[in-house]
Amino acid sequence: MSILYHSSTKVLVTGMTGREGLFHTKNMIAANTNIVAGVTPGKGGQTIEGVPVFDTVREAVAKTAANAAVIFVPPLGAADSIMECAEAGVPLVVCITEGIPVNDMARAAAFLKEHPTTLIGPNCPGLATPGQGKMGIMPYHIFKEGDIGFISRSGTLTYEVVALLTAAGLGQSTCVGIGGDPIIGTTFKPCLEMFEKDPHTAAVVMCGEIGGSDEEDAAAYIPTMTKPVIAFVSGRTAPPGKRMGHAGAIISGNTGTAAGKVAALQAAGVPVAETIFEIPDMVKKALNR
């Protein structure tokens, strides 16, 4: 078991015929992900890497029963691709694209309120369920099957921490990269709710960073959970008013500081790691392993 992605998930890829889309589609297939369709307007009818390509998402869903989508469409078309997937009834959409104009995402967010689609990202590495496959760009070899749920706002930091968990013998149920943009589809809290319900997840590790208040929202929910949560927050040394790479990683005024997030999480009883190297031991301690 896992959350969001399972071995039975049928995945379509929008922007599959582009450089990034094709490269990562091959990697997803190598990870045994069931890629059933590609979508690129103007390339319908082709077959690439054994995958049929369609002009529209609706057609791809009708012909292949795809029930999840990964988006590699370039920034100015990506929000439109998210809405196309939602309109075609795709229940899970993972948007990898970085650099989408924020007004486009505000429109997509409003659109999604009227469609029963779960969006992960944008500007994210996607998600992986070890042993079953992945949607996105995470390097699959670092994972190990297990019962630790993982949620992070960043990509390479996810890989770092997952590699530490794996080396410590702590495998993962599902790893979700929720994205580094100011407007994202799914924040920490709904991911925690899914992990709380997942019978194969025993504990959750969440890696937050400066900017916004999603970590604080998660902290308000965590005391109602039965499973332990271990947290890490990056950007403790980031100065206010400077965007630290991710569009969403910026301290404005007194909101979004690492100190505020750490305090909120600790007040909720969450052990917060000072450095990523302490995370595996803290997880083991919480699970009495």
Binding site: S154, G155, L157, G180, M244, G245, A249
Partner: peptide
């Protein structure tokens, strides 16, 4: 990666 660089700082 932004998160990794921030963590490195």
């Amino acid at each position: 990666g932004a998160g990794l660089v921030m963590t490195t700082l």
